[in-house]
C-alpha cells in the first residue's frame, strides 16, 4: 500500500492477545494518534464513481 502512494503510518499491524487489554488500549491510542497526525486520507475514497 505504501509503495502505491499511501503515506507511511496509515497502516499498522499488531499482535494482541485477548488477554492483553492494556496493550490493546495502547495500540489503539498509538494508531489513532499516528493517523490523526497525518490528517484526512485523500486516496482510495470514492464518494461516487467518476466516469465520462
Amino acid at each position: 500500500m505504501e509503495h502505491m502512494g499511501i503515506e507511511p503510518g496509515r497502516i499498522h499491524f499488531s499482535w494482541v492477545s485477548s488477554a492483553e487489554s492494556t496493550k490493546f488500549v495502547q495500540v489503539v491510542n498509538e494508531v489513532t494518534e499516528a493517523v490523526k497526525a497525518l490528517g484526512p486520507n485523500n486516496h482510495f475514497i470514492t464518494k461516487e464513481a467518476k466516469v465520462a
Binding site: 482510495f44 475514497i45 470514492t46 464513481a49 467518476k50
Partner: peptide, 15 residues
C-alpha cells in the same frame, strides 16, 4: 469492486 472506468476501481483491480 465497482465495474465502471472509475480510476479507484481500476487501481483496486490492479493492486
Amino acid at each position: 469492486v465497482g465495474k465502471s472506468d472509475d480510476s479507484i476501481d481500476i487501481r483496486t483491480f490492479h493492486f
